[in-house]
Structures are given as C-alpha cells and as structure tokens.
C-alpha cells in the first residue's frame, strides 16, 4: 500500500502541496485532474524521480521518501509508452530483469509469463517503431510488470490511443488488476476512464488534492468545478449489460432496462449527454428505442439554456433551450416524457 503524508514538491515552475493519500493494497486508484494539475509530477514523485521538499512517502510499511528510484520496485508506464527505441521488444522486456541481475532461466520464464499475460508473445523480435499504439502500450505494461513491482503507476496510459485500442488496453488493465491483485495508481484527465476503472478517485487541481472518494461520491457530490462541470454535462449510471432476447444489448440500471448499442457485457457504466435527450409532453412515436415517463424535479437556469432533472425515478439531466422551455411552459412537478436513442448511450 502507498501512504503519502503532507507531501510537497517544488519544481520551480510547479508546486505540489499538502498531498495526503492512503492507497490500499490491491486498490485501483485514480488520480483525476485537468491538464497541468500536477498529476504526472505526483506520480513521478511517488516513483522517486523528483526531489521532495517535505513530507513522507511510505510503500508497504517502509518509508521510501529518500530512497532512489531504482530501489523502489515501482512499475511505471507513460502515456506515449517510452519504449527504448534502440532495443527490440524483447530487449525492452529484459532491461529491468538484467538490471536486477536475474538468472537467464528466470529471465526467460518471466518474459514468457508477461508476454503471455498481455498477449504480446508474437511481438518479441519486433522493433518498437513498427508496433501499433495499442501494442506499444501493452509492451510498456509488460515491461513495467517484468520487475514484479510492488505498485504499478500509469500516467495517462490510454490517452494516446484511438478509441478501439483504448477499449482493448482498458480491458487489459482491468484483467491485470483482477488477476494479479496489483495495486495500481492511474492518472487521467478523462472522467469516464476514471469512473470505469477506479475503486477510488482523487481529484487533483493546481497541485492540490481537492477530493478523494468512490466514483459515486465524486460524481454525486463534486466539490471542484472541474468535476461539477463534468457531472453537469453527463448522465452517468452504473449498471449491467446483458444480451436481450432479440440479440441486442440492454443495460439494467437500478431495475430500469434501457436499450444500448455495445459489444461489451457485464457490470459497466453508461453515460448519456443531456443534449441527446428529447423532452415531450406526449409520448413520442419515433425511431428512438428508449422512451420513459418521469417528473421534473429540478430546473437549473443557465440563461439561454436550462438543465432539467427528470426523475423516472432514475434521475436524468436534460438540456433544453430557453425557447423550447418557454414554449412548452414547463414547471417543476410536471409530468414529461424523455426519449433518447440506444446509440446515444455510451457504455464503458
């Protein structure tokens, strides 16, 4: 586990201050924050790559504040992979093992194990420059795991990937976490990524931690503008995706069944943009698959637009222009219908 007490790091141009975190063994911990919040610096400080001004870092009950990076046993993965370009994939994977003076047989076994784990055995002889983004990230993960790290630190591991590869690597991360019971600290600016993967989330802004909690807590009671603005712009639900009778997919959220379009199955999350929801006073006959009846419980006036909360009883935040709102003469307590396409729901 990782314990960070009153950590301060001063890099001249940037300041981390008053960082207190306690990350449990086997936890998938997310550090969420906008660009320039100091996420990478925090992660690199945990790895021992920056001199620390004050405070303490403890790793599995041992103080490592002043311990050199090479002795901490921390696996690190960067956004743009940082594979050694002068070494083959195999050379990259052997780098740490040679450094740790493992025997030849042992090295062979570990390389086989990590490449098997990440499904990159066929890439061993390749040069990193010939790999796709997803492949590079898997190799970078395999390299970090090769030293059997106490903790895995991931710096925006999905940000440089295209959406398809991102889904693959995200799945890989979940599996690694599950199978190895690894403690993972994952830095991201992407809210959906944070919710999809994190057991807990810490929100970092301008070098300070604003909030720590479960995805649910962070999302429902945000205390930072960064999170609040995101929360306002998305409906986010936790649910379970299953095959429906007709072969399509449905997600069940608190007993409510919605049609979705996705290949994924299992306990997942769904997001829906407020502007993708139609509000009507009569039920709509349209091609949209999801139509629900609910009551307006809250109106948030934003000038030319308004955010309506409609309880079905699941709460949906819907965006309306002032003109539509006035023409329909909507009020709190009024019954309306909310309609949205199955494809408007993003499952992650």
């Amino acid at each position: 586990m990782i314990e960070i007490k009153n950590l301060a790091v001063n890099l001249g141009t940037f300041l981390l201050e008053d960082i207190n975190l306690s990350i449990e063994p086997g936890e998938y911990f997310i550090i969420l924050g906008p660009t320039g919040a100091g996420k990478t610096i925090l992660l690199e400080s945990i790895a021992g790559l920056h001199p620390i001004k004050s405070g303490e870092i403890w790793l599995n009950g041992r103080e490592v504040t002043k311990l050199e990076a090479e002795k901490r046993g921390i696996g690190f993965v960067y956004q743009d992979y940082a594979l050694f370009p002068h070494l083959s994939v195999k050379g990259n994977l052997l780098f740490g093992l040679k450094q740790k003076r493992r025997s030849k047989g042992e090295r062979q076994l570990i390389v086989e194990w990590v490449t098997g784990l990440l499904g990159v055995s066929h890439l061993l002889e390749r040069n990193p420059s010939t790999l796709s983004g997803g492949e590079r990230q898997k190799v970078a993960l395999a390299r970090a795991l090769s030293i059997s790290p106490q903790v895995l630190l991931l710096d925006e591991p999905l940000s440089a990937l295209d959406p398809h590869a991102r889904e693959g690597v995200q799945q890989e991360l979940r599996q690694i976490h599950h199978r190895l019971k690894a403690t993972i600290v994952h830095v991201t600016h992407d809210f959906e990524e944070a919710i999809a993967l994190g057991d807990r989330i810490a929100v970092l802004s301008e070098g300070r931690i604003l909030q720590v909690g479960t995805p649910e807590q962070i999302f429902r009671q945000p205390n930072s503008e960064f999170v609040a603005r995101f929360a306002m712009s998305r409906n986010i639900f936790a649910g379970e995706v299953r095959d429906a009778d007709d072969g399509h997919a449905t997600i069940t959220i608190e007993g409510l069944k919605l049609d979705v379009v996705t290949e994924l199955r299992g306990k997942l999350h769904a997001s829906l943009r407020p502007e993708d929801i139609l509000i009507s006073q009569e039920p709509l006959r349209s091609s949209a698959r999801n139509c629900l009846r609910g009551t307006i419980t809250h109106i948030n006036d934003r000038g030319s637009t308004l955010y309506l909360t409609v309880s079905t009883p699941l709460d949906f935040i819907c965006l309306l222009t002032r003109r539509s709102f006035e023409e329909m003469g909507l009020r709190v307590g009024e019954e309306v219908h909310v309609t949205f396409k199955a494809s408007a729901i993003h499952v992650f």
Partner: peptide, 12 residues
C-alpha cells in the same frame, strides 16, 4: 522519460 523509465526498472 526514457531515462526515467530506466530508473524505475532498476537502473542507477
């Protein structure tokens, strides 16, 4: 960052 990764992999 290549040097930093090398450090985390055990290199002085």
């Amino acid at each position: 960052r290549l040097e930093k990764v090398a450090r985390t992999l055990g290199a002085s």
